[in-house]
């Protein structure tokens, strides 16, 4: 297990290194950032000096070396726009995104897994077919439309939930969270619901497909022949055997939502990563974009690692090597 963890850590470092190269090259070939920091009427001398300060006068390998060195020290440079360390900006926004995404994933799992088990165990029933049609809607409706409909219904028409912002937050471990206040929760619900619909639909369909396969297996019938109740046959014996693909998709969707909650965050004016990213792209705020890309890569790599660990917890035949 320890050997495996070390091996995976090395793998993660390699992936992150590759991403750092790509990010660095991308940044080097997309415009000259010096114009972002100097005033419009700067003289050639001033520009040259700015270039020197930014290290842009050195060779590419040298620049990359400095880039990585700084990065390892947590220094991604300052945002051109906010004049603050880019990393701090990102880390300040991360909890906001994390909280709506985690709530969305929890909602997806809680709704989709029982429905998927039901639909997979009773494929012929009318109710199962209704569930499946519903899931198609969940997949095909674009999130901006869902978000706007939810705002229209719940915020404008019925006035149950607010339509934008994070509401009250409390500070825990140096960051601010909405999910620990009652008012925060009312703000979390709608964006999370918007984010969750597609994931819900996908997890439902994967769970159903897995269950349909599992239902055919002898051990399900053997469990019934032991006198195990139908519910326990489905959940204790069946679901776990159908779970590997569900966990895979769950991991991918989790990373995906953290990285690309942009549209939903924009609709609900939710001050998370996505909004920051959009703003930064608009203003070519390179340091912020770099941190964002590296963070997303890190998140995917970590999720991937966790998913592999979960596999081994689910299935004893899968061993870590």
């Amino acid at each position: 297990m320890l050997g495996y963890t070390i091996k995976r850590l090395i793998q993660m470092v390699v992936v992150l290194w590759a991403v750092s190269v790509i990010v660095f090259l991308m940044m080097s070939f997309t415009g000259d950032p010096v114009f972002m920091v100097v005033p419009i009427d700067a003289t050639d001398a001033e520009i040259a000096q700015a270039r020197r300060i930014l290290g842009l006068d050195r060779s590419l390998p040298e620049q990359y070396f400095i880039f990585v060195q700084n990065m390892l020290q947590g220094d991604f440079g300052r945002s051109y726009v906010f004049r603050e360390p880019a990393l701090d900006l990102i880390l300040e926004r991360l909890p906001a995104t994390l909280e709506i995404v985690l709530v969305a994933m929890a909602m997806s799992a809680i709704v989709a897994i029982p429905l998927g088990v039901y639909a997979g165990a009773n494929p012929g029933r009318f109710s199962s077919r209704t569930i499946m049609s519903g899931s198609l809607l969940g997949i095909s409706l674009p999130s901006f439309w869902v978000g706007m409909m939810l705002i229209f219904l719940f915020a404008v028409k019925w006035r149950i939930f607010p339509s934008s912002g994070r509401g009250d937050t409390v500070e825990i471990l140096g960051t601010r969270w909405s999910i620990f206040t009652a008012d925060g929760w009312t703000h979390v619900i709608l964006p999370s619901l918007t984010l969750s619909l597609a994931t819900m639909a996908i997890i439902l369909r994967i769970t159903r497909a897995g269950m349909m396969e599992v239902m055919r297996q002898d051990y399900m019938k053997f469990a019934r022949a032991k006198g195990v109740s139908r519910r326990n046959v489905l959940y204790r014996h069946g679901l776990r055997n159908a779970l590997i693909p569900v966990v895979t998709i769950f991991g991918l969707q989790l990373g995906d939502l953290i990285a690309f909650a942009t549209i939903t965050e924009t609709i609900f004016a939710w001050p998370g990563l996505g909004k920051l990213l959009i703003d930064s792209i608009y203003r070519a705020d390179r340091p912020v974009i770099v941190v964002y890309l590296m963070l997303v890569a890190l998140i995917f790599v970590v999720i991937n690692f966790l998913v592999d660990i979960v596999y081994t917890l689910i299935d004893p035949r899968i061993t870590v090597k």
Binding site: Y219, F222, G227
Partner: peptide, 29 residues
């Protein structure tokens, strides 16, 4: 009834299946 059968299966009448490679749940000890 199905409830009654839950008490009969395993307790009164047990079954041995053809293929031992598939009749045990692979994920439970």
């Amino acid at each position: 009834s199905e409830d009654r059968m839950h008490k009969i299966r395993g307790k009164e009448i047990a079954m041995i299946f053809q293929d031992p490679m598939t009749s045990l749940n692979p994920l439970h000890p």
